[in-house]
Amino acid sequence: MEMLTNILAATVVAGTPLLLVALGELICERSGILNLGQEGMMLMGAVAGFIAALSSGSLLVGLIAAIATGVAMSLFFGFMAITLAANQYAAGLALTIFGTGLSAFVGSGFVGNSIEGFTRVAIPVLSDIPVIGRVLFDQDPLVYVSFIACAGVAFFISRTRGGLILRAVGEDPDAANANGLKVQAVRYMAVAFGGGMAGLAGAYLSLAYTPMWTENMTAGRGWIALALVVFATWRPGRLLLGAYLFGAASILHLVLQGLGWNSPTELLAMLPYVVTILMLVLLSWDPARTRLNTPLSLGQPYRPSH
């Protein structure tokens, strides 16, 4: 029981960065913009957050720096994909390649430093519930932030006027434009939100998950998040489920080793990526259903005629 509780708690922690970045990408994709730059923005968030926290001594400053960096990176992308109506695939890839290079460059002097990262804060009363208390309510503060963000995004998309506008823009930008909605502005905001969340997710890695900076420390999480959004059929509730599923896959090799299972770590480290492909297979085999769920204008460059 003790063991199971610990595994579940570790699953939530491993799933949190995925949840954060995927929530941002979900909003972004709902506006019709596909940003393949998540990995690059996460890396920049991770390195900026780490450097800011290390030099200021404050984790909060680190978080703010990470979010601001993510937003700034995403605005570069927005300029290309929205204002210049460039190919979104290429622009997103450029963002990832640029972010990978820049983060390695900026962070090269900080490899090997370590800081006191976020620690667990138990929520009174709730954390006393058996199992669930430890798993959900005795975690670091950013885990709680991810819960709130998930609920907030779900509420925003389905229950608010802003969410309706977002979806309208994503489904049919022409019609939205004809109705007087500012398509480009909405998309910029969605992209910026995605950037901020990616920065926050990066900071989770460098300030909470493993409080240090190493090159390429995201290890493909930004890409997995893109698959997660497809997995969740663009719905926040399923995203939560999916993020923890992938979180479980990514700590499985630690669990198996703990159980005395002696298979090579490199083979077990493939698991999250294999699971991602299997998920894509399960969800994509019916193209009609995929089409039904995908925001209609996703990935299409759009410039209003006036």
Partner: peptide
């Protein structure tokens, strides 16, 4: 990597 990323960025722009 920084140089390569910048180059691709400017190219798309």
């Amino acid at each position: 990597g920084l140089f390569q990323g910048l180059l691709l960025f400017y190219l798309l722009t």
